Each structure stands twice: as structure tokens, then as C-alpha cells.
Simulated scan of single mutants.
Amino acid sequence: MYSSKLNPEQKAIIDRLVGTILVLAPVGTGKTSVLAERVVRAIREGVDPKRILCLTFTNRAAKEMKERLSLYCPDRLPYLTIKTFHGLCASILRFEAHQFGIPQNFLIYDDSDCTEIVKEVFRVSKEREAQQLFFEIEIGRLSFEPADLSECTREGFGRLQTRSYNTNKEVF
């Protein structure tokens, strides 16, 4: 299955079937292709697809990996684990959620999600202002000890809680 475009380093990655491997290279250098070929080669050499873990840094790379492998080994794709690092951690947390006393269906919000929530709750239309408010909330949250958070919710974050209450009385 080797592509004729592979360089010696890429061929060495595909040929090394024992152990883990980390491939770090600039965008557009063929990392996904090389790793997909390595997975296919491992499966052809008898490695159980359930024992293969493909981790990427981005959702886009994980999606691309799944698409490529669906072409090369569609019957084995359901048995492969292909995730981002964050996705793998979230899966582990969901699996062990009961150990932490959290629901399995928890949501993870990134900064962009949080900024959108701030825009909605505080009725802010400007992105920059919403980002600043989010930053202030984070600073306020991080400046309290966990035991102080109950006091914080009663006393509020000053201007932020007052503003939120005044603009969103139905939420409170």
C-alpha cells in the first residue's frame, strides 16, 4: 500500500509495528497518510484493531484519519479507537464518571463556547466585551479557594453578578 511519495522516514514509521510512535511534523507533510498506512499494515500483519489507538491533536485530523481508514479497512474501522487527546480524556472521564460523582453526559465548554454564553447571559453583542467579561469571571473564580465559593455565590462577583441580575432577572 506504500505510496510512491513516501520518504525514508515515513516508510520507517509505517514499518515499525511494535510499540508506540509519536509523529511530529508541520502541517501538510503527510502525517495522517503515514499513520493510516501504519494502521492498515498493522492490521494486515495480524494486530487486533481493538488494540490500536490513534491519537491526534485536532478534530479535523481525527476525522481525516477515520475517512482514510474507512476506505482502506472499512470492516475493521468500528474496532479502532481514533480520537483527539482531549476526546480520549473525555471518554475516560465519562467511563469513570461515577467514581468522581459526575454525570456521564457532562459537557465540556471551550473558551469560544463560554464567550457565547457570556454574550447571551449578559446580553453583550461585542465579541471583545464578552471576552473581557469571561476573563473577569475566570479571574474571580480562580481567586477564591473552593471553600470560599459558597460565600462568593451569595455575595457575588461585584459588578458581574449585579449586571447579570439586572439584565437577566428571569435567569435568577
Rank of each mutant, 00 (worst) to 15 (best):
L69V: 05
F106A: 08
N105S: 14
A62M: 06
L77P: 04
I137W: 08
C114K: 14
G101L: 13
L133A: 00
I82D: 02
T56F: 03
F135L: 10
T20W: 07
E127D: 14
S70N: 13
K63G: 12
E116G: 13
A42H: 02
V121G: 02
P26T: 02
Y72Q: 09
S143R: 15
D110P: 01
F95V: 04
C54K: 01
N105A: 08
P78F: 06
R141L: 15
V121C: 09
K31V: 03
D15F: 01
K83W: 00
V18H: 09
I52E: 08
R38N: 03
R94A: 13
V124S: 02
A90L: 10
T81R: 14
T58Y: 07
S91P: 00
R16G: 05
L133G: 05
Y79R: 13
L17Y: 03
P49E: 12
T115I: 15
E96P: 00
E116W: 03
K66N: 07
I43F: 06
E120Q: 11
E64Y: 04
Q104W: 01
E120W: 10
V47H: 02
E96F: 15
E64A: 13
S70F: 09
V118N: 09
V121W: 14
G30S: 04
L88R: 09
E129N: 07
R60K: 15
A25G: 05
I137H: 03
S33L: 15
R41V: 02
C114Y: 03
R94N: 05
V40D: 03
S112M: 05
N105Y: 11
G87L: 08
T81C: 08
E64I: 05
L149M: 13
N59M: 01
T56K: 07
G19S: 12
L93C: 09
E127W: 12
T84Y: 11
E45Y: 04
N59F: 01
I92N: 04
H98P: 00
M65Q: 11
E116F: 02
P49W: 08
I82W: 03
